[in-house]
Design a protein around this nucleic acid. Structure first.
Lengths: 245, 245
DNA sequence: ATTACTATTTCCCGAGTAA
DNA sequence: TTTACTCGGGAAATAGTAA
């Protein structure tokens, strides 16, 4: 598309060239080239921006000096603040589902030191020896699960012993029923389908919350919008249970 | 003006409503109302955005669910990064001028405990008992001086003793000849005109740099673009001598 | 080289309205 | 109620060109 139209991109271009701190020399054809518009359009837009009070122009012979006014700069600040609001606010992803019993292999796998030590180190807690299986209820929850799987940023490496090899998994920290620290496990080559998640936690959640099969539970993950997409910086900006902002 | 035109503001509106994390229910008339456009335009823009790959739409009976695509989100991220580049990059203001001798009253005023202690506390150094007078050379430097005076964020309060009252001053930290920590003083009711600045520093700059009247010197202040304007947050975001980024 | 006018085309908005 | 078509008016972009 090109998100920005003529006037807006002129203001941004000027700001990028420090035209809020001092006058900047400019020609309409150079501006046109930069913004992929015609020289005539550049000329007209500068006239309009000046008329509307977003810039000042000082013409000395053949040279034109342009400066952003406070009004022009405020326009950019507003936009900046709005985008900051989007990208720097944690977004809560909530998954609801029902507890069910698995085959108990979760407990076995977590008890293996090859997994146990990694969990302890990378998740920051000593895991209860067992996982809680949760069947997701809605298509929204399943959609959320798929999103979280993409974003999960903690990797538990696979390993081998003399008998067999053990696969790797990704996980992401979450909050269980608005209370308990936990992590959702995304296990490579699981036998579960995408409507199921497994949760590991420092405590026995089943016991602590008095859960039996079929009980409804809730998982919340709070993450930064930018982490949902690949391009930008830090990966490790997930927060657990952050409600405000 | 309204910096944003239809399509762009729809993308931002959707992002503000978390439409990058999950589908969002929307009607064209509600969207029209929010963005002050007609229902017809809202409809047309949604169709176009979908065709261009910025959003996906899922129509279930009368309900429409919209989601930003990765492409759409990247468009916003690009803009965000661009604005961050503008507002979160220090801008260097450089003032050049020539040293000249004043009447020596700078030394007297700074030696007064009413000023001395404030300088020590608010500027973070014990000032040399004297100021360096600098006559600015260019109109650009004078313009810069006026800008800095507006932005100067450290206030030295005036006070009274039994004999007379002493005026207040503002100052801002700067770098002297790319080397020395110092501060530019903007004295209320000074007898100097706007082409002159006074500098206070922890050392005797005249001696340390072997300066005599007429020698050229340089002052550099590095500040955040947002601090140039009133609306936004933190005032104390001035940095001294930050060259990179 | 500039800037910026006029004329033409192209694009966009919104009223009316159908489904 | 919805969405989204057609269509007329007007805004915006460019070409041509003057200064």
């Amino acid at each position: 598309m090109k998100l920005l139209k003529g006037k807006e991109s002129i203001l941004i271009f000027l700001a990028e060239n420090d035209a809020f701190a001092h006058e900047v020399r400019i020609t309409t054809s150079m501006l046109a080239k930069q913004l992929s518009i015609s020289q005539q359009t550049a000329s007209r837009l500068l006239i309009q921006l000046e008329k509307e009070g977003y810039i000042t122009r000082r013409i000395v012979g053949k040279e034109t000096y342009v400066k952003l006014t406070e009004k022009g700069m405020n326009e950019l600040i507003d936009l900046h603040v709005r985008l900051k609001g989007i990208f720097e606010r944690p977004v809560k992803i909530t998954l609801e589902g029902r507890v069910f019993s698995g085959l108990g292999e979760g407990a076995y796998y977590i008890s293996l030191s090859g997994y146990y030590n990694q969990i302890k180190e990378k998740l920051g807690f000593e895991p209860f020896l067992g996982t809680l299986n949760i069947k997701l209820l809605s298509s929204a929850a399943i959609e959320g699960r798929m999103l979280l799987e993409k974003v999960a940023n903690i990797v538990i490496e696979g390993f081998k012993d003399e008998k067999r090899s053990y696969g790797s998994a990704k996980c992401i920290k979450a909050l269980f029923n608005d209370e308990d620290e936990c992590a959702i496990l995304f296990i490579e080559r699981t036998h579960h389908d995408t409507s199921v998640i497994e949760v590991v936690a420092p405590h026995n959640l089943r016991e602590k919350h008095g859960l039996k099969d079929g009980d409804k539970v809730k998982l919340t993950v709070s993450l930064q919008p930018v982490s949902l997409f690949s391009n930008l910086v830090n990966v490790s900006n997930t927060e657990v249970g952050c409600e405000k902002l």
